[in-house]
Amino acid sequence: MSKILIVAEHAEGKLNGGVAKTVAAAKGVGGEIHVAVFAADAAAVAEQAAKLDGVTKVLAVNNAANANPVAAVLAPQIVEVASGGYTHVFVPGTTFGKDLAPRIAAKLDVQQVSDVMAVHGPNSFDRPIYAGNAITTVETPAGTVVATVRLASFQAVGAGGSASVETVSVGAAVPTHTRYVKLEAQKSERPDLQSAARVVSGGRALGSSENFKVIFDFADKIGAGVGASRAAVDSGYVPNDMQVGQTGKIIAPELYFAVGISGAIQHLAGIKDARTIVAINKDPEAPIFEVADIGLVGDLFQVVPELTGKV
């Protein structure tokens, strides 16, 4: 039977929401699911992890060296824990997990599976390649399965469980060649288009640079990044670094508003990984409605300010 170790991502005593989604992926494998928390003081995070549905045990590893998550420091400790009979090591597919997982896999002398988006069994997974333009099914060879989990593909498990928490001492020597200096939140009034969780984009229907204000106002109200269709960029309404689409940016926000954008295939290629697409367009025939999760036919100059007032 599978025995899965999930490495908890956390910051400032809070468990990262990605862990609950990683547990969901692990449940697809089946078997025992343990979450390991590496921290200076793991107690608070371990308690949160213990509540996740499906988790059978939480391992708390306290070490002053774990005060900040540094892959080179965590990897030897994880390898030591994983050697205790674990068949799988799963890590959230965040920058934390992507940095860490290959370091674990190499130490265990196994290939790693990146961005698991579906689980077919203990050794069979789907993962995207070519920026999501193709999906492959892969089988892992013998040995521990080390994988990062694509969070957008899984629904978080509930928090109604009560797993036992066990404090574990780990003897692995940790290196000192990598030292954490600081973390700064990105200084930007508006979130970066590429990494924003919410994005509002405007198309040529905006009609002018000045009219883009309704887009910016709405975006600022909901803390969203701002993008534009190629047509709007080509019309000179906004600078080209705002273009979303084939030759511009490919983005994957949780929530995407396409305002006055007809939905040319180039644009759709740029937003295919968006979790939820909302389309606002006065043309009920616009192709964007074919892919939108929520569509509203109407005049954007009326609808968008109205929305800004209501959210």
Binding site: N240, T247, G248, A264, I265, Q266
Partner: peptide, 14 residues
């Protein structure tokens, strides 16, 4: 437009 998409046409935007 979906046709042009298949030609993998690209120009540096700026």
């Amino acid at each position: 437009l979906s046709s042009v998409f298949l030609s993998s046409t690209n120009h540096e935007e700026d």
